[in-house]
Nucleic acid binder design. Structure first.
Length: 304
RNA sequence: GGGUAGGUACCCAAGUGGCCAAAGGGGACAGACUGUAAAUCUGUUGAGCUUGCUCUUCCAUGGUUCGAAUCCAUGCCUGCCCA
């Protein structure tokens, strides 16, 4: 631990209260924040991605927010490249990088790395045109290990596995073992914030109601006039409001769907983070202030 | 008050004598995840255990039948139409 530079991760699901805790912790340890959020990277999505306020961003430097337009495709790889650079930059200024977010895959990409194997959009498009049953049969042929690990129904992952094989000539199941990330390179501590599920869901509802009063509808309506990328079009709130714009249902229904989809997302985030045994969990009491929580983490770091 | 359609599991909904602990969908819960990840996909969902079986279910009560969610009677409740 001695000679390695410190990096602190703060993980947790949507609406658990990460941002406020991160800000308080950043003050305590003189850190800069690196957002680990697949949607806060989008410049035009402010309300629906629940970005930290501009005041907060002025007080504490935040990285990986507003880095691309919603018209651009984003990915774990782009995130990894940018976040790695931001981390090095923060270190170079003698500060601690505090990586905060709920996008499990992006966090994994940073923590454990990604293998070489770029997206080949031409190959991908070809594969996506093929009958899924045939695709799966092909994967079985070419890479039985990957086929065994991926359910035949999950076309998305089958396509990806085949795409990597075709691009690299190496089976996906082998390629994916070659990678390295922050874990082992830096002195990493990963803290996870959790709350009782019921309380989390209540917080989700409150947050989305607040988004509505903050002008979410208008924001999404203007987003919908842009040629959204496939990733940008998936921010929770965009497809839901599109239904209103298209006259399929009313606003009330859209809000209900946003809450529902966010709850589902929270569930998947929990599943993702729970399996990572490196995470040090803190269960939050409902009345506990962000400063108090940050202090718990701070003491934990100091005593390590 | 009269007529009519109906009451099925957490919700919606199929089933109209045995193959029904009961299709399907939603929700909920659990899980997978290596460049689209706020994506994509899987499992469980009456109870109990020795996981195959036992027990308790389809508004209520009574009846018909070897056998009822399914047929009959009565009651209660709901929607619609007429008064």
């Amino acid at each position: 631990m001695s000679d390695r530079l410190p990096v602190i991760f703060l993980a947790g699901s949507t609406a658990v209260g990460k941002s406020a805790v991160a800000a308080a912790l950043a003050d305590l340890i003189n850190a800069e924040i690196v957002s680990c959020d697949a949607m806060q990277v989008y410049r035009e999505a402010n309300i629906i991605s629940d970005k930290p306020s501009s005041d907060l961003q002025r007080r504490i430097p935040h990285h990986l927010i507003d880095v691309v337009s919603v018209t651009e495709e984003f990915s774990a790889a782009r995130y990894r490249a940018l976040a790695s650079a931001a981390t090095a930059d923060i270190h170079s200024r003698g500060k601690i990088p505090l990586i905060v977010g709920g996008s499990g895959m992006y966090m994994m990409a940073l923590l454990d790395g990604l293998f070489e194997g770029d997206v080949n959009s031409v190959v991908r498009a070809e594969l996506e045109a093929v009958d899924p049953v045939e695709l799966y049969a092909e994967l079985k042929q070419v890479d039985p290990d990957a086929a065994a690990a991926i359910p035949s129904e999950n076309v998305r992952r089958i396509v990806r596995a085949l795409e990597v094989y075709k691009a690299t000539g190496i089976p996906f199941s082998q390629v994916k073992q070659r990678r390295e990330g922050f874990w082992g390179k830096y002195a990493v501590r990963i803290f996870g914030l959790e709350r009782p599920r019921e309380e989390l869901y209540r917080r989700v509802e409150v947050r989305i109601d607040q988004m509505v009063t903050a002008g979410m509808m208008e924001e999404v309506r203007s987003l919908l006039t842009l040629p959204l990328s496939s990733t940008g079009a998936r921010i929770i709130g965009v497809p839901e409001v599109k239904g209103v714009v298209d006259g399929v249902y009313d606003i009330e229904r859209a809000v209900y769907l946003m809450k529902l989809h966010t709850r589902h997302y929270v569930k998947r985030q929990m599943t993702w983070f729970r399996k990572d045994k490196r995470i040090e969990w803190l269960t939050l009491a409902s009345g506990e202030t962000p400063v108090a929580i940050a202090d718990r983490i701070y003491k934990n770091i100091k005593h390590a």
